[in-house]
Amino acid sequence: MEKIVYQKSKGLTDATLSYCPGCTHGIIHKLVAECLEELGVLEKTIGVASVGCSVLSYNFFNCDMQQAAHGRACAVATGIKRTRPDSVVFTYQGDGDLASIGIAETIHAANRGENFTVIFVNNAIYGMTGGQMAPTTLIGQKTTTSPFGRSVVDHGEPIRISEMFATIPRASFIARVSVHNVQNVRNAKKMIKKAFQYQLENKGFSLIEVLSTCPVNWGMTPYDALQWVEKEMINYYPLGVYKDNYENK
């Protein structure tokens, strides 16, 4: 007898993802959907989509979704969570959305200890608009707005979001994960699930930063892009749990 060991999550709709071939947004969508499905909270989940490649994620997640203005997903999620405290609320934001225009909303949501989960997809570039430099673009990385590579003098150092948020006392769970191979995909799922569990236990703000790829704008094949994450991005953005207010307590 055969049994199914892996199939498309019920947390995703039948719509075909609008992402480019090999974009790890798809993997991260799957992980979020699988976590919600396994926790049995799909029916009471409200997601907040951001602006960027993930703007259409309301078509893909099989739960209630709301689209927020650019960078304001955390402000919208705050409103949703406060008016519907029994719902599971998460935001799904890219680095152009969260780390650039939306950094204020996100920091203040964390500082207030709002009880929702932020999935932060860091691919070091603005994907949807055609590969411009993001606050998270690595030093020396070529983009359409930094054709000679990002320089420290002109553009500053890339922002390390997880480290920054780990300094906020009321943020309860901050972790950085990657999806560049099977082992890391499994670990990423574990962390995302933990973040949702914290929310269900009313433990407050959680943010999971997921290192992602943008094969098209990086000018690489999907597999080369995953290797670039492993070799270059993880050097600057080390993986791990940066803050866990409830560990061993």
Partner: peptide, 21 residues
């Protein structure tokens, strides 16, 4: 061998994996 690595890394949920019980 039904390890499901292919399906886990597939961004578009294309693959369903079956394994002998």
């Amino acid at each position: 061998i039904g390890c499901a690595f292919c399906a886990m890394m597939c961004p578009d949920s294309v693959i369903t994996v079956y394994r002998l019980e």
